[in-house]
Each structure stands twice: as C-alpha cells, then as structure tokens.
C-alpha cells in the first residue's frame, strides 16, 4: 500500500502543500473558491520551522497504536487498517483537546470544518486525502510538492532508496553527493545569521 513519505531534507519551505491541503479539504476543492468559503478551509499539513528557519512538512504519522486514538474520550478517533489511516469523526469529537496532549508530533488543530456540524469546533488532522484516493488521486500535498519533500509510495521502496543512499555515501572513495549545492549554500548562510543573533 502506498503511503505519504516525508523527506525533510528536501523541504524548501514553500508551504504549497498547505494551500493544496486546505483546498483539497474544502467544499469546492478549488483554491480560489475555497478561500471564500465559510468556515475557511485550513491545512492539515503544517509547515513548521526548524531551528535554522528551514521548513518541515509536519503531518500526521497515522501511528499504530495511535496515542490520540487511545486518549480520545468520546471514541471519535478510529483506525482504518486497510488504508492505514487514523480518522477523527467530527460528529463524535467533543473538542476536549485530549488528543492535543497525546500527539507526540503536534499535528492536530482545532477549528470549524465543513465536515463538522456548523459552528462546532472539532479536532482536525490529516486523513491521507481519503476521498481523493477513492477517486484515484494521490494526496494533494504530494501532488503539489515539486521538490520531492513529499512522496507517495510503498514504504518499502522509500526505505530501500534511503538505504541505498546511505550505502553509497559510506562506500569507500565515494563522497556524499550534494543534490542541491545552492540550497546547501543558502542554508549555510541562514544558519550563520541565526547563530550570530543568538
């Protein structure tokens, strides 16, 4: 089964995944129209900032066992084993924030959503674009990511690639390949700026 895999070293912090996610979780599924909807659709992937102002697409890991699921008081959180996805039922959610305390990744937000009863604040998080997947589409965040920070693939494939990369860099005589020297250079400058301010 294909899953969304995050490659943090490739995130350039453009936040396009956030806009795509919000749009994919809107009534209209259209970025422009979505921005006019009430409640305003919000992203379920959150590009946070690292210690050196580098971007990082923080999204639900769909843990198994899921701490949020175990912590949920009204039993609103469930796991769909077939899709390896943890869902929050907006109708059962009571907005108690127990899941906020349980999630070790900080990916759950609390706001109104068009899938919830009107006016009700509920816990909202990534659903692996369940509806898009049913329609044969890949998750919106992956579709829009052009730097390869998000991929949709078999976990085994991603792991194999990573292993190969590591193997290449540890073999004798092979220097680590800098995929984007310009990005590395930019990050070095930014890192220096931040260290100087501290």
């Amino acid at each position: 089964m294909k899953e969304v895999v995050v490659h943090p070293e490739r995130c350039v912090g453009c936040m396009q995944c956030m806009a795509a996610c919000a749009s994919a979780h809107s009534r209209s599924k259209n970025l422009f129209l979505a921005s006019l909807e009430t409640p305003r659709p919000r992203a379920r992937v959150h590009v946070g900032v690292g210690l050196y102002n580098e971007g990082f697409p923080n999204r639900c890991r769909h843990c198994d066992p899921a701490p949020c699921l175990l912590a949920c008081l009204p039993g609103a959180i469930s796991r769909n084993a077939e899709k390896n996805t943890v869902f929050i039922d907006p109708n059962r959610c009571i907005n108690c924030a127990s899941c906020a305390m349980a999630c070790p990744f900080g990916v759950i937000r609390y706001h109104e959503d068009f899938t919830a009863p009107p006016g009700k604040t509920v816990a909202v998080k990534c659903d692996n674009c369940y509806e898009r997947q049913l329609a044969g589409l890949i998750p919106a965040c992956v579709e829009v990511c052009k730097s390869g920070a998000l991929s949709f693939e078999e976990k085994a494939d991603a792991m194999k690639r990573k292993t190969d990369e590591v193997a290449r860099t540890v073999s004798a005589g092979v220097a680590q390949v800098d995929l984007a020297p310009g990005f590395t250079l930019l990050n070095a400058i930014k890192r220096q700026q931040i260290e100087l301010a501290r």
Binding site: P8, H46, G48, V49, G50, L51, Y52, E54, F56, N58, P104, F105, G106, R198
Partner: peptide
C-alpha cells in the same frame, strides 16, 4: 538537544527536535 528557549517560543514544533 535544541536550545531550551526554543521550547517556549510560539513557533516551537517537532522539527526543532530533529537533528539537521
């Protein structure tokens, strides 16, 4: 490993705990 102050900032998030 992150600077302690980072944990108190509004922008604190999981990434700040990861090694670069």
């Amino acid at each position: 490993r992150a600077p302690r102050e980072a944990l108190l900032k509004p922008c604190f998030n999981f990434k700040q705990l990861m090694q670069m």
